[in-house]
Design a protein around this nucleic acid. Structure first.
Length: 397
DNA sequence: TCTGGGGTCCTAGGACCC
DNA sequence: TCTGGGGTCCTAGGACCC
């Protein structure tokens, strides 16, 4: 065995130390920094239109209540006080208003959340640089190569985030991402959980299957029909039965995760695969009688996607659209350019228009979306073009 | 009074090529 | 005329996540 092989073997057999860090009620907590007088109250973030607080004479702020809201939209985040009413993210605002009509409603402010997101990630990176970005409010951190004791490290990271942002987070630390992710939820909010493989039977198995990242509503329902509700029941389930109902690869995955097994690495770098924009209308629009409005929205989406591509430095080759009808049925169409990649709004609009013509429009629409995929960095494409031109030159001269 | 917007990954069939 | 697999690309839909 040579040195390289030895290293690889050692690396793959060594116990890893992976953290999952999740900001507590992130959007709501950022809003509470801005409106400290709301601390301790049920507050939800979401909705679509402008429901900014109104500053009254004397500087007092007047906030919107859930009961004052009418129309479409969902809750993105609820404070823990609001969650006691049964409000959860993803819930329609109108339904949340039934549960807690007096809860404060604030509009989303993504710029503010992105600002705090960058801040907490930079703060963590100073202490532990091996970070995988998995969203605006959560990251995985590979702590394997750091010398410090696990709990000391966790508390140092959490304190640094609190000092830099005033925000709290929860952490799970375990030998892999699967268990770290479950762990960060165990002592939420503002808590830490450290898990080992030997903790799986006592601390993981009693949990419901949907606590596993990757088992969603559909799989949970199918498992419940097989009398499988806890991770313990999943771990004991007959392999043949699972294969019959979920297919070979998903069944194998279910079996592995129920035993706490997960070999995915922490990925510190990731290129985007697609960039898209979509919008749900205030009211459903008719393909004929609202044709003008739809056409305007469609073009605007293409212009936005093109701007996003340029700002982020990508060009794409596959243009796709998404339509959602009034009955929530959703269809997509896409088209791959035979010419070069593009970030041009006009070209995207034409391709998207071709896609649209392939969908029969009878029902009213509630959503329209435009996506560009098969991306590549614009600079790499330019460099390659330059390189290939250079290479060809000698042939011509 | 249902159900946002931004993504990723997987599956599956058909075309096309070797 | 019928008969193979394997590999890759394209397209559509769906599950899932934050």
């Amino acid at each position: 065995m040579n040195n390289l092989e030895q290293n690889v073997t050692q690396q793959s057999t060594a116990q890893r130390r992976i953290a999952h860090l999740d900001m507590d009620a992130f959007y709501a907590s950022v809003e509470l920094l801005r409106y400290p007088e709301l601390r301790g109250q049920p507050v939800v973030i979401g909705g679509r239109s402008e429901h900014q607080p109104v500053v009254q004479a004397g500087g007092r702020r007047q906030f919107y209540r859930l009961r004052d809201y009418a129309g479409r939209g969902v809750i993105t985040t609820a404070t823990y006080e609001a969650r006691t009413f049964g409000i959860a993210s993803g819930m329609g605002v109108m339904k949340a208003a039934q549960l807690a009509p007096d809860a404060i409603l604030l509009p989303v402010d993504f710029d503010a959340y992105r600002h705090y997101s960058r801040q907490f990630k930079v703060t963590v990176a100073v202490i532990a640089p091996q970070i995988e970005d998995t969203g605006i409010d959560e990251i995985y951190i590979d702590l394997s190569d750091l010398p410090d004791e696990t709990l000391v490290l966790a508390q140092r990271i959490r304190q640094a985030i609190r000092d830099a942002t005033g925000l709290t987070c929860s952490m799970g630390i375990a030998p892999n991402k699967l268990l770290a992710k479950i762990g960060s939820d165990l002592n939420k909010p503002d808590g830490v959980a450290i898990l080992d493989m030997s903790d799986v039977p006592s601390r993981i198995w009693p949990l419901p299957v949907q606590k596993i990242n990757g088992i969603g509503p559909k799989a949970t329902k199918k498992l419940a029909a097989l009398n499988i509700r806890t991770i313990a029941e999943l771990a004991q389930a007959d392999a043949g039965l699972l294969q019959l109902h979920f297919g070979r690869s998903y069944a194998a995955w279910l079996h592995a995760v129920s035993h706490g097994i997960d070999h995915r690495p922490v990925q510190t770098h990731c290129e985007p695969k697609s960039i898209s924009r979509e919008t749900t209308f205030e009211r459903d629009l008719h393909p004929r009688s609202d044709r003008e409005a739809l056409s305007e929205i469609f073009t605007a989406l293409c212009v936005q996607v093109a701007a996003d591509l340029k700002r982020k430095g990508y060009i794409g080759r596959t243009i796709g659209i998404k339509l959602r009808f009034e009955d929530f049925h959703t269809v997509t169409r896409d088209f791959t350019l035979t010419t070069a990649h593009t970030a041009d709004a006009g070209q995207i609009r034409r391709a998207a228009g071709e896609c649209l013509r392939r969908i029969p429009l009878t029902k009213k629409l509630r959503l329209l979306g435009v996506r560009v995929s098969a991306l590549r960095p614009a600079h790499a494409a330019a460099a390659e073009e330059h390189y290939s031109t250079q290479r060809e030159l000698p042939l011509f001269f």
